[in-house]
Design a protein around this nucleic acid. Structure first.
Lengths: 194, 194
DNA sequence: TATACTAACTAACAGTCGTTAGCAAAGATA
DNA sequence: TATCTTTGCTAACGACTGTTAGTTAGTATA
């Protein structure tokens, strides 16, 4: 029954993501995970090779989603301010699409062991460079006022990433609206009448 | 030897803060901590009652520092935009003053057990409300353009909090400069020529 | 009907966890 | 000199860790 097998594997992955988010990777035991599903800890090993495999899937799955978003943005030739809006929109889509996985991706990656840890870090750096490039483009064209790109890109990223903490799929703010308001705030600031 | 006693206690607190930041609370064992100091794990208990006591001191010590900053800001009668600049400045001071403790404060608080956990959460909420009040003040006075206060305050806080991740005390950016650039960015946005 | 595979189980492994008990050396105090 | 306090030690506790071995019932395939 290929379908049932996949269902169970999916269920394990989803519960693991939830527990890793709520309690952290190190504080979640395989017995916790098994109990949350309703089986014995040893039975998990019919479906996976190790606990860390679960973490790897979550971290690299999210990384892949962010790269896909980046490639979509970069496939278009756009002025920097509009490109930045699009990048924000796509990033928000990825985060809101799976807030649990986003939280694990952001906070639990350091429990990866080598070589995955180094690979993960370099992927993250690559994504930061993609956003930095947009900022530099706009700065060079005189469209952005940025004294320090690094500060700006890290501030931007933290604003976008914290989303997982308060976004509610059943709330009244849609991802698109959130992205628009975030983009307005980042681009125009809070001060009225510009 | 009251002084030596205090020195050792301080050393333990600092190493614990560093290890909790780097590996996370759950993944740091008392044996790890003891080894980092150069004593046996059991010897730690001459200086503290439990592992969680260490976490409590870090979390509530930082909370106290943030509240002190808030009270300083609130003791002055200022227009909202200037008050927000000051709040940002004070917040940056607290974070940059101890980046390790800031990281633990931000990420490891959920390993507190009751009743400390609930107390901690309500203190955090109180601090968010202090910042929200400034935003509402400016909005009511027509100085701020804010469609959604909650989104704005959480975005602001995440920008400020992520500082612990990249601020280097020996770097070329002083806390005051960082605070000014952050404030400019939040208030004026990235777009040139306003 | 016979065979192979899947997904669960129980039992157990070697190691680690936070913590306690009991003790020893050193220095401070009386 | 005698006593108390501090700060470390060794040894050990019971619980928990990720994981493996071996087994079993049920289902799909030949």
């Amino acid at each position: 029954m290929a379908e049932l097998l996949t269902e169970r594997k999916t269920q394990i992955a989803e519960k693991a993501t939830l527990l890793f988010k709520e309690r952290g990777y190190a504080a979640t035991s395989m017995r916790d995970l098994a109990a949350a599903i309703g089986i014995e800890a040893a039975s998990l090993y019919s479906h996976l090779r190790s606990k860390e495999e679960l973490l790897q899937r979550i971290c690299f799955g999210m990384a892949e989603a962010f790269f896909t978003a980046r490639d979509q943005v970069n496939s278009l030739q756009l002025p920097a301010p509009i490109k930045l809006r699009l990048a924000i929109e796509k990033h928000v889509e990825v985060v809101t699409n799976d807030v649990n996985a986003s939280a694990v991706f952001l906070h639990e990656w350091r429990h990866l062991s080598e070589p995955e840890l180094s690979i993960f870090k370099s992927m993250r750096r690559e994504y930061e460079e993609y956003l930095t490039a947009i900022l530099q483009e706009g700065k060079a064209a005189g469209q952005f006022n940025i004294p320090n790109e690094k500060l700006t890109v890290l501030t931007l990223l933290s604003s976008l990433n914290w989303l997982y903490d308060w976004y509610r799929p059943d709330g009244n703010l849609q991802p698109h609206e959130i992205a628009m308001q975030l983009a307005d705030q980042v681009l125009n600031g809070l001060i009225t009448n510009k």
